[in-house]
Amino acid sequence: MNRKILLSLFLVLMLIAQWLIPYKMIWTNDRTVKEGKVFKFKTMPIDPSDAFRGKFIHLNYDNTLFCLADNKSYKQAQEVFVSIDNDSLGYAKITAISHIKPSNPNYIVANINYIQQLEEDSSCIDINFPFDRYYMEESKSKDAEDLYRKSIRHFTKNVYSVVYIKDGNAVLTDVKIDDKSIKDLIPKK
């Protein structure tokens, strides 16, 4: 095949791929929000020295540890399927971790942060939830981060993120403090 035709073909393929990837990101996001189940993930206090990382709030989650009767088949940094369900208070909790895709659509794909070996045949696995950034407008993000930090240190405040989950995809749509969106709590400048 002529070199120019081949390069033209590659050019067309590259241009299409450059549109397809962002489009797929949006499509997956929309489908998860429309068809997925919504969960409230409770956040936990973060290290105050952890500097503000840009135009987003860095979220640290509570209930990321899951104990199971297995201490051999999982390794640190491994990608696993994490099944999610609501606890009695209405917050999300991990119900199972597995190597194979669960039949229930309420699961996410996440990496193992660390493994605590307990006894001979059991261990606790800490999961890194991938939805740990909530982007804000540049002028509001610093105030939002400060508000988030203050609220999570205040034990009477309920701080959680709203996450839609379907077939391994997770979409973070809001961060709420006492059921009010953090966006509405920041005064307009």
Partner: peptide, 18 residues
């Protein structure tokens, strides 16, 4: 432009990813 597009889509829709 490719980097701009991907990172902004991630930012607009809060799409997780390292």
């Amino acid at each position: 432009a490719v980097a701009v597009c991907i990172s902004l889509i991630s930012q607009i829709y809060n799409i997780p990813g390292s």
